[in-house]
Amino acid sequence: MQSVSLKLFVELNNVESWRTTPGRVTFGAGDCSVRLNGVNKWKRSCRMIARASDRDAGAGPESQSEQNTSSVFERNQFYALMKQQMELAVMSENYEEAARLRDSLKLFEEEEPVLRLQALMKEAVANERFEDAAKYRNQIKEIAPHYLLKCSSDATTLGIRVQARSVYIEGRSQPLRGQYFYAYRIRITNNSNRPVQLLKRHWIITNANEKSEDVWGIGVIGEQPVILPSNSFEYSSACPLTTPSGRMEGDFEMKYIDKVGSKTFNVAVAPFALSALGDVIEDT
């Protein structure tokens, strides 16, 4: 297997001074040669040179599989960085650079295993080659099983339905600093015949390195809403992450309010992905 060695130089120009920060990251990929030069509206220039290396050319199939799986995070981090640099190039009206970055992204998408297999799967479904589609789907499962999780979820507990949807906020993310920002929207529908009140929330937030954090709080967005039968309550919030992908899940503590002394109960929020790439696997 070949790998790409990426050497990154960042120069930040502000009113006060110039500052240069060198860095280096290596991740697995196919044959690839990428050179990017971008300037954003804050006068930050980013020059990246990626070159292929044959140091892993003799690795066996099992070793290749392990390295493919472990390098998904780094490849996605690079992909998210390139996307942001293209947006910044457009904002600064550096259209020549934006075009180069667009072409580099297209090349990357063609060579990145998960994205390439996703495109092949979509094409197979469109042409009703369902056996091929299933084959590509299974290959994605082998490479990155956690990518099967969607950016949305839907679960019902005791007649209380909770729908969740996340979206990557590119404008508030800084891949160079390992900062990724996600917004999510929650819709709670009371399909029972009793009014309920949301009392507490509990979130489990897990990043791409399987590091989890538990977050507890009173109500949601400062409220403890009462939801009547056949009614819904919606709210939006946000979650920062240190990796370009991860997941959220949790539960809401609720109680019926039509009877004094009712016990509280937990309503599940099914896991949903936080992903800079969006949904990789779509319904087939």
Results as ranks from 00 to 15, higher is better:
201 R>L: 08
224 Q>C: 09
189 T>C: 09
264 T>Y: 04
209 N>S: 07
105 L>W: 08
281 I>W: 06
113 P>I: 12
137 R>Q: 13
146 H>G: 03
241 L>A: 03
71 S>I: 06
244 P>V: 07
111 E>P: 01
76 N>A: 05
164 A>H: 07
246 G>H: 04
60 G>Y: 00
246 G>E: 01
13 N>L: 11
282 E>S: 14
237 S>L: 13
181 F>E: 14
106 K>A: 12
261 G>H: 08
43 K>S: 06
229 P>T: 01
267 V>W: 00
98 A>Y: 04
215 V>S: 04
194 R>I: 10
280 V>T: 07
89 A>C: 12
275 S>P: 05
142 E>W: 03
237 S>H: 15
140 I>C: 05
17 S>F: 13
280 V>M: 11
59 A>T: 02
115 L>Y: 01
102 R>L: 12
157 T>P: 09
142 E>H: 04
175 P>C: 14
219 G>V: 08
191 N>G: 13
14 N>G: 06
104 S>A: 14
162 V>L: 07
257 I>T: 11
109 E>Y: 01
122 K>G: 03
117 L>M: 08
253 E>T: 12
64 Q>L: 12
177 R>Q: 14
49 I>T: 13
131 E>L: 11
118 Q>L: 03
22 P>T: 11
133 A>Y: 02
73 F>C: 05
187 R>A: 10
57 A>L: 12
35 R>I: 08
109 E>L: 05
261 G>Y: 08
213 E>N: 10
107 L>C: 02
209 N>M: 10
22 P>W: 04
259 K>P: 01
164 A>C: 14
24 R>M: 08
218 I>P: 00
271 P>H: 04
3 S>T: 07
11 E>S: 08
123 E>H: 09
215 V>R: 09
16 E>G: 05
196 V>P: 00
87 E>P: 00
86 M>W: 06
7 K>T: 13
114 V>T: 15
194 R>W: 07
130 F>M: 14
236 S>Q: 11
28 G>D: 13
36 L>I: 15
140 I>N: 13
214 D>R: 06
266 N>W: 03
172 R>V: 02
181 F>M: 15
2 Q>R: 10
166 S>R: 06
119 A>R: 10
269 V>Y: 01
